[in-house]
Simulated scan of single mutants.
Amino acid sequence: MQMNTIPDASTLTAWRKSSYSNNGDGACIEVSDGHPGRVPVRDSKTPHGPALVFTADRWSAFVAAVKEGDLRA
């Protein structure tokens, strides 16, 4: 599977933190809305760093797996 990235994701707008993030320790991911068919994802601690870009269907599958508890360490 090919992974796309955005080297400096700070130029994107409408970032929102995951509702599953723990705001106490800063371990958050953010997604950027408004990109049809694509979902940019970044680490909230490095807003000027890179973002991974997933297709909307791959991102939906990942979110569904998290909600179902299918991603155990």
Rank of each mutant, 00 (worst) to 15 (best):
A27M: 06
S18V: 02
P50W: 13
P36G: 05
L52W: 13
E68I: 01
S18P: 05
E68F: 05
F54H: 13
P50R: 11
Y20F: 12
A51Q: 06
D70G: 14
T13Y: 04
M3P: 01
A56C: 01
P47M: 12
S21G: 01
D57V: 02
R72H: 09
C28N: 12
A65D: 12
I6R: 08
I29V: 15
G34K: 06
P7F: 06
N22K: 10
N22D: 15
G37S: 06
H48D: 14
M1S: 08
R38G: 00
A56R: 08
G69R: 01
N23K: 11
M1I: 02
W15G: 01
K67A: 09
L52M: 14
R38K: 12
P40D: 11
T55G: 08
D25V: 00
D25A: 01
I29W: 15
G49I: 01
H48G: 14
G37P: 05
D25I: 00
S19P: 03
Q2I: 11
I29Y: 15
V66L: 11
R16H: 07
L52I: 11
A73D: 13
R42P: 03
W59G: 02
R58I: 01
V41T: 13
C28V: 08
G37C: 10
K45E: 12
D70S: 11
F62S: 05
P7T: 09
G37Y: 10
Y20T: 00
D33F: 02
R16W: 00
A9T: 03
R72A: 07
A51I: 04
G34V: 02
D70H: 04
G26V: 01
Q2Y: 14
D57R: 04
G49S: 04
P50K: 09
S32V: 05
P40H: 10
W59F: 12
A27V: 01
N4I: 06
F62N: 05
E30I: 04
G37H: 06
P7N: 07
M3S: 10
R72F: 02
V63Y: 03
D33S: 08
L12I: 08
Y20D: 03
R38M: 08
G69Q: 08
G26F: 02
S44L: 09
G49E: 03
V39L: 11
L52Y: 12
V53H: 11
Q2W: 09
M3L: 14
A27H: 10
A14M: 03
P36N: 06
P36D: 13
V63M: 08
A14V: 01
A27L: 04
S10L: 06
G24N: 12
A64N: 11
T55F: 02
R38H: 09
L12R: 12
I6W: 13
D8S: 05
F62K: 02
V63H: 03
